[in-house]
Design a protein around this nucleic acid. Structure first.
Lengths: 128, 128
DNA sequence: TTCCTTGCAAATCGTTTGCATAATG
DNA sequence: CATTATGCAAACGATTTGCAAGGAA
């Protein structure tokens, strides 16, 4: 891979993402970072989110809603997606890594890992 | 929902899907069904796949590769996606529905279910 | 006849990319 | 200076949609 050069835009994007626990989309990152730097382009946001995800500094979440979400928390954890409001919430969960082994049992290829997310109704939407 | 009327196109799509265990994409469904009916349009394929999924006759799979896959097998089961060739394979797996309860423990909203898929290298790609 | 479904083409949406210019090392 | 990063706008790929015409009940 090419040598990485420093960029203010990338810093802003990473910093913004670290302040948020709600797993924003590229568009949300864009409109927020734009408050500090009105000249930044959407393309730059996408390029940097992809780059940061590639080097493992952030996580790209594909939750089946057709839009990518991004998470500065790269530690292994799970997510809940509210079917009503779309909110994405971190989930505390006793490790279920065992399911990978469990899946491996009857499978001849090699299982490297799994993607899991939960869905339902969030606390907010239940009170309505 | 509106009353459903019979359509040859829908039948063909459903029938084709039932012959396949490889979870084809809309495009693959389209080009195959076209062999029997060269006039069918891609829009019709999409509309019927969506309709069939909505009424629960087929399953729509979002596996994070940017393309929807479809499965005529609506029984609960899991999938493996090969990171190299993209193949989607059914997985036999001792039930892991317990993870939904496990996730519910520390969560105040209501968890209705989970989406899980596994990834790695399939048998075919391992022998290369 | 009613109204659902189709074929076609245009539109949409999220994301990527080509290119000339600016910034970094 | 060499090379990476940016802004802009155009391109992309998957999917959806408006509309007039065709088909089912």
């Amino acid at each position: 891979m090419a040598v990485l050069k420093h960029s203010k835009q990338r810093d802003m994007i990473k910093e913004f993402l670290m302040t948020r626990k709600d797993h924003p989309t590229a568009d949300v990152v864009y409109s927020n970072v734009r408050l500090q730097n009105p000249n930044i382009s959407l393309g730059t946001v996408y390029r940097n989110l992809t780059l940061l995800a590639d080097i493992g500094e952030i996580q790209r979440l594909r939750l089946g809603d057709g839009v990518d979400h991004f998470d500065a928390d790269t530690s292994p954890h799970y997510h809940f997606v509210c079917s009503e409001c779309g909110r994405v919430i971190d989930l505390e969960l006793d490790s279920i890594t065992g399911i990978t082994d469990s899946a491996q049992t009857h499978f001849k290829g090699h299982i490297a890992g799994h993607i899991t997310y939960f869905y339902g109704t969030c606390e907010n939407c239940m009170n309505e």
